[in-house]
Computed example of a mutant assay.
Amino acid sequence: MREIVFDTETTGLDPQTGDRITELGCVEVEDFIPTGRTWHAYVNPQRSIPEKVTEITGLTAEFLADKPLFADVADGFLEFVGDARVVAHNAPFDRGFINMELTRIGKPIIENDRWVDTVVIARKKFPGAHASLDALCKRFGISLETRDKHGAIIDALLLADVYLELNGGRERALDLSDDRGEAGGSVTFPKRPARPEPLVTRLTMEEREAHEAFVATLGESPIWKSGGLI
């Protein structure tokens, strides 16, 4: 199952009062595991950025002045997302901003039923506990060394790791359940080619004779006599 873990940075909290997107970050995951494919863009919001926001994100209007407008990166973003589900931390916030920007340029929005909110998942899994991205990273032992500021691609990469842990962690690779979550799956081991030359035995004649004498005491049909074991 292909999903896109998604994060935005913005000029403020409310797209309905003129706040705009300043950064977009996307991380592709397949069956909850990051594939290594990412998509990232800085966006010129065409407006000022409050000092408090700059303290959080490190982004200034001067830095973003020569960056593309949202209209210029929208097609690349939509192509990367495709028809995948979109995973976000506090999804209504990111959904509100991205759909506002898409509507502004006449592009179709990402419908509500395609969004997955990791805050909701975390609160169900750990009721009463803090559900911020920082708190979940600490809970799962995910390093925050790269996160001196809030950044869309950095946060999306961290969230991809958190999303995997919220869904069982890397041990899911050994999950024997089927698509309905019921036991009964199987593990497939890769076939190894035969050795070009058999290994030379290191068994001495004395050891072989002692082993055969021991097996003779085990009855008429011991398993050791099957399969050429002796």
Rank of each mutant, 00 (worst) to 15 (best):
D31H: 09
K67I: 02
M1G: 15
T8L: 15
E182H: 15
R202V: 14
E51W: 11
I230F: 12
A213K: 14
H211V: 10
G25Q: 01
L159P: 10
L229F: 10
R195S: 06
P108N: 02
E23Q: 13
N44W: 08
Q46F: 10
I223G: 01
K124N: 11
K124R: 14
T188I: 13
P108I: 09
G96A: 12
N44L: 04
L13E: 07
V43W: 05
L59M: 10
G185Y: 07
D83I: 06
E62I: 14
P198I: 07
A183Y: 07
G76T: 09
F77D: 00
G151H: 05
E220T: 15
P193R: 13
I110R: 00
V43T: 06
D148V: 11
M205W: 10
G36V: 08
K124L: 05
T38K: 08
Y42I: 10
L144I: 10
T38V: 12
A71H: 06
L174G: 13
L102F: 09
L218V: 05
A65S: 14
R208H: 12
R95K: 15
A131G: 00
V5D: 00
P193T: 12
P34V: 07
A71T: 11
A129T: 04
F126N: 01
A88T: 09
T188E: 11
L158P: 03
E171Y: 06
P50S: 01
G141T: 05
T60F: 12
S143Y: 07
E9V: 12
L176V: 14
I230S: 00
S48T: 15
F32R: 04
E51F: 13
P15Y: 12
C137W: 00
I33T: 09
W115C: 08
R180K: 14
N112T: 13
E111C: 06
T217S: 10
L218K: 14
P222T: 06
H89M: 04
F6S: 02
T57D: 01
T11H: 08
A183N: 09
S221K: 15
G151N: 07
H150R: 06
L133H: 00
F126G: 04
A84V: 05
G36F: 03
V87A: 02
L203T: 15
P127W: 03
T118F: 00
L218P: 04
F140W: 00
T22E: 03
T60H: 09
A74N: 05
E55Q: 14
T118G: 02
S143I: 08
I98R: 10
L102P: 01
E9M: 04
W224H: 12
I223Q: 03
R202C: 08
R104C: 02
S143K: 07
R172F: 01
F97T: 08
G184M: 06
P50D: 04
S221I: 11
P50T: 01
T38A: 04
F126S: 04
R37D: 14
G141M: 01
S177K: 14
V116G: 01
S221W: 15
E171T: 15
L166S: 06
T10I: 12
D113Y: 15
I230H: 03
A131T: 08
P196E: 12
P15E: 08
V187K: 02
P222K: 01
G18M: 02
A71I: 01
A173I: 13
E220D: 14
E209Q: 15
A156W: 05
L203Y: 08
F32G: 02
T103P: 00
P68E: 03
L199A: 12
G168K: 12
W224I: 13
D175Y: 04
V5C: 03
T38Q: 10
D178H: 05
S177N: 13
